[in-house]
Computed example of a mutant assay.
Amino acid sequence: MAHSQETREKLRQLYVSGSQTLETAAMMCEVPQATARNWKKAAKAKGDDWDKLRAAYTLAGGGIEDLSRAMLAGFLMQYNNTMTMLQEEDTEKLPPSERAKLLASLADAFTKTVAANRRMMPEISELAVAMETIKAFGDFIRENRPAVAMDFIELIEMFAPELQRRFSS
């Protein structure tokens, strides 16, 4: 099924703005996740790196807390869809042992997602505090030295793995 350019742009905007994960944006745009990943990969090959734009958007004001909430909301939608599917499945089609395995796996994923989300929240995350400091410095640069703002963003993208290494547990 061919999708319109408008659909592709909507998906890109939802992802780049940081308001949705790629998977959630794909669901919202009624596009298969594989198609969304292919669009993202093709765009990167043409110089339109969605991840770099997303990082710049987050740095410019999207905020790690917004990203954390979006990730948790995306997971909870998937969690709810899976639970609904498990409740609607004919019990003859899915043996109780398989249902138990799926529920255990879903519970484990939920626990891990909530723990990861908790680590990302600013009030309990050193990385988030560091990122907030960098954001404030970025705002300062944009207001006082706009000519160097793009250089700052490029350097921060290069520095991000070091921040992750220093502040992640």
Rank of each mutant, 00 (worst) to 15 (best):
Ala149Gln: 00
Leu94Pro: 12
Ser4His: 01
Phe167Val: 05
Ala130Gly: 09
Glu89Lys: 06
Lys101Ser: 00
Asp49Ser: 08
Thr35Trp: 04
Ser97Lys: 00
Thr24Leu: 14
Glu88His: 03
Met28Lys: 04
Glu89Tyr: 15
Ala42Gly: 09
Glu23Thr: 07
Ala43Asp: 15
Ala149Leu: 04
Arg54Val: 08
Arg69Asp: 08
Tyr57Asp: 01
Glu9Gln: 06
Phe137Arg: 09
Ala34Phe: 00
Ala104Cys: 04
Met77Gln: 11
Gln33Trp: 00
Glu157Ile: 06
Asp90Ala: 04
Phe75Tyr: 15
Pro146Ile: 13
Asp66Gln: 15
Glu154Cys: 07
Lys135Gly: 07
Asp48Tyr: 01
Leu53Ser: 01
Phe167His: 04
Arg8Met: 11
Glu123Ala: 10
Ala115Thr: 06
Thr111Ser: 13
Gln87Val: 03
Met120Ser: 13
Gln5Ala: 14
Thr133Glu: 15
Lys101Asn: 03
Met71Asp: 07
Glu30Gly: 09
Ala160Asp: 01
Gln78Trp: 09
Leu22Tyr: 01
Gly63Leu: 02
Gln78Asn: 06
Ala34Val: 12
Thr21Asn: 00
Leu163Cys: 03
Lys41Trp: 04
Thr24Asn: 05
Met71Phe: 12
Asp108Arg: 15
Lys93Leu: 14
Ala100Glu: 13
Lys44Gln: 12
Ser19Ile: 09
Lys41Leu: 05
Ala147Ser: 05
Met120Pro: 03
Arg145Thr: 14
Ser168Val: 14
Arg145Glu: 15
Lys46Gly: 02
Ala56Trp: 02
Lys46Arg: 15
Glu65Asp: 11
